[in-house]
């Protein structure tokens, strides 16, 4: 299999990216590496159906990001969407229309292995009913080249809880892992208290983090906060992704959590390439090729 050099990858990708590397798998062993390196792309907070001054380009931004990812010379093994696929609506019919149109747009992705998880905009008003019709289960696991992925749903409960049932399921799944297995958790909201006064938390997220603590090589990717953010809880790294609709201010940087003004360069928006090797390397991808 291909083992692209990172610089070659960036060159071939033909897009300006910001790289973030960290020893996020501190307990990594050579044997695990032998399982194979790969990369995936994270989309988040596409909010299909939103319209308003924070993004006058809202009808095209997602399509542009799809085209940019389709243009990557090294196509990812799979793509994950970490919630808020659609912008919320009180009308169940409109919600389904948005989900349908969203699915049509992302079906243009060259990579056909695409995984979804819900955000509160998709699932909180009907406890995930419409979401499940279009995208299936709201929490599930999958394995890819020696890495175990677990998606957690902290939005189908409108109080932003995982709930005891899901926590028990999470605990049971983790029990089957060895302490040095490579594990990735995908979710929508921060599992830790990033900014409680802005509700950037998960009500019972601390319980999930406690369950994760015995595992040395576990990392979390999430969305919700519409910006890049990197945070450690003990040895566990939590990486928030940019959105594709409008950026939000840095946690606590201003009194209110209001969208940042529109910037035609869309520098606050984008997707992210994640390479899983002995280290996890993140490359932030712009919406459109410059």
């Amino acid at each position: 299999m291909l083992q692209p050099d990172r610089r070659d990858f960036l060159k071939l990708a033909g897009v300006a990216g910001v790289t973030f590397t960290a020893g996020l798998f501190p307990g990594q062993r050579a044997s695990a590496q032998a399982a194979g390196n790969f990369h995936f792309v994270q989309f988040s907070d596409t909010h299909w159906g939103f319209s308003g001054p924070p993004n006058p380009d809202a009808e095209h931004t997602l399509e542009k990001a799809v085209a940019t990812v389709n243009g990557l010379a090294q196509q990812p093994d799979f793509i994950v969407f970490t919630g808020d696929l659609t912008h919320t609506t009180d009308d169940p019919k409109v919600r389904r229309e948005r989900m349908k149109r969203f699915r049509e747009i992302v079906s243009a992705l060259r990579v056909k292995d695409v995984r979804f998880l819900p955000g509160e905009h998709d699932a909180s008003l009907d406890k995930g009913e419409a979401y499940k019709e279009f995208f299936g289960a709201t929490h599930y696991t999958f394995d890819h080249k020696g890495v175990h992925f677990i998606t957690l749903d902290n939005v189908s409960d409108p109080a932003a809880k995982l709930g005891d049932e899901q926590l028990a399921w999470f605990a049971a799944d983790l029990k089957q892992r060895k302490p040095d297995d490579r594990i990735v958790v995908l979710t929508h909201r921060p599992l830790f208290d990033l900014q409680p006064s802005w509700d950037w938390t998960t009500a019972d997220g601390a319980k999930a983090i406690e369950l994760m603590m015995p595992y040395k090589n576990i990392v979390v990717f999430y969305g919700h906060i519409h910006q890049e953010n990197h945070h450690m809880t003990g040895h566990i790294a939590h990486h928030a992704a940019k959105s594709l609709i409008f950026p939000l201010p840095a946690p606590g940087s201003q009194p209110k959590r209001a969208p940042l003004p529109y910037d035609a360069a869309m520098s606050g928006l984008g997707t992210r390439d994640v390479t899983m090797a002995d280290k996890v390397t993140l490359v932030e991808l712009p919406v459109a090729k410059g």
Partner: peptide, 10 residues
């Protein structure tokens, strides 16, 4: 700050 923490719409 106080706020609504039960998602209630757009």
């Amino acid at each position: 700050t106080f706020f609504c923490d039960i998602f209630c719409g757009d």
